[in-house]
């Protein structure tokens, strides 16, 4: 059941103007959508806000209605053992087969003492990445688990 292992991330394009990030949060709050994790990548001109929320489809829709340019991206949520080298081991496994991690970021909450890290790889290697990680016994959280965290 690889499909449920794919977590939908909501990405929002933001010009670097003050107040826009707050507007995103207010819009989501007004529609009872909770933010589970977020990261911002930015340049001097614009930024990309990436969010994990409890209801990604609804989040994308309400943000578009509020005038934001919104994308949805598939990412993988891994439970990384909370010990030195835990993350490095996972990255090495991916690197060994030539899978490039485009970006990753961590969850706010820890689960049973472990860290939860979100990975983005290219869509065409998404399924094979999930298989590889499963074979290596790296725990992958299901989408349902992630949205409910």
């Amino acid at each position: 059941m690889a499909a449920t292992r794919i977590v939908q991330q909501v990405s929002i394009f933001l010009e670097n103007k003050s107040g826009r990030l707050a507007e995103v949060c207010t819009t989501l709050g007004a529609h009872d959508i909770n933010i589970r994790a977020l990261c911002i990548a930015d340049t001097s001109d614009f930024g990309i806000l990436r969010l994990i929320v409890n209801d990604p489809a609804k989040a994308a829709s309400v943000l578009q209605q509020a005038g934001f340019s919104v994308g949805q991206t598939s990412v993988i949520a891994l439970q990384i053992p909370d010990r030195p080298g835990g993350l490095g081991g996972v990255l090495e496994k991916l690197e060994a087969v030539g899978i490039n991690v485009e970006y990753m970021y961590a969850f706010f909450v820890r689960r049973e003492g472990d860290a939860v890290v979100l990975f983005r790889v290219a869509d065409d290697v998404l399924e094979s990445t999930i298989r590889l990680l499963q074979e290596a016994n790296v725990p992958i959280l299901s989408a349902e688990d992630v949205y409910a965290l």
Partner: peptide
């Protein structure tokens, strides 16, 4: 130019 309401690349590299 305004981005379309739904955008495709969510990486800095992709948008640049």
């Amino acid at each position: 130019v305004e981005l379309a309401p739904q955008f495709f690349s969510d990486t800095i590299r992709g948008l640049e």
